[in-house]
Design a binder for these strands. Structure first.
Lengths: 116, 116
DNA sequence: TTCATCCTTAAGCATAAACTTAAGTAACAG
DNA sequence: CTGTTACTTAAGTTTATGCTTAAGGATGAA
């Protein structure tokens, strides 16, 4: 992990394409070969391989070549890192809303907040 | 929600840029104006506004103009949808690993699986 | 009214993405 | 050894992104 930020760039970018999400979705049900991943997608095989490269560079997917077949799997830890980034920001926001709720119910009528 | 897939495209794409993530990070600590969002970023204001438009179109951020100031807030539900997509795929994968673990510990030595 | 503050809009530009087709290469089956 | 399967590589095209600078509004303060 040279730069965590860069890694998030690559992961979210990888997830921003419906074909790639479909591949991830397929892999969430178990390992698959390149042609298995390609089957449901309406595009050429090279295009699929390019998508796979994006997923692999992001770290979300690992692949391993056995004979002439490339076997692909999901990387749980990478998935978790993307999920956690979202989770933490969302929690920060929710805590803020909670505090606001507390404030409002504690002293209804007071509206002058002091600073930012 | 006309197309859930399209919405995920836009959200993950929005998150795939470090400047935009920085804006989301800032907003997770509370609402902010456009220039507050711009302050820590090394780019022109119009560039920031363009990033903000990407975030807004994705649904992750809501904005509201009061006087000459645009106030921005995070949309918790949109954040949650992106998070959930990741969470569910990751769980699918983990369940699979668990089943594999059960299988291996239940009958060590047997290696001939049936076929996929 | 006059001026500074906060955005907005428009236009242009360089780079990156998402494909395509056309040829390979490498394992394996017969 | 020959053909089929399963990818790989290369090159080219089109569209989208991420900026920039240069000019506008539109509000609010004095």
């Amino acid at each position: 992990m040279l730069k965590d930020e860069r890694s998030l760039d690559l992961m979210f970018h990888a997830l921003a394409d419906p074909s790639r999400r479909m591949m991830v979705d397929r892999l969430s049900r178990g390992p698959a070969s390149v042609s298995e991943l390609a089957k449901p997608l309406a595009m050429s095989l090279p295009a699929v391989v390019q998508h796979l490269a994006v997923l692999e560079q992001s770290g979300l997917v690992k692949t391993q070549k056995v004979g002439r077949v490339r076997s692909c799997t999901l990387d749980n830890e990478a998935m978790s890192r993307a999920e956690q980034w979202l989770h933490q920001r969302r929690l920060g926001w929710e805590r803020r809303l909670d505090r606001l709720g507390d404030f409002l119910s504690a002293d209804p009528g007071v509206t002058k907040t002091k600073k930012t």
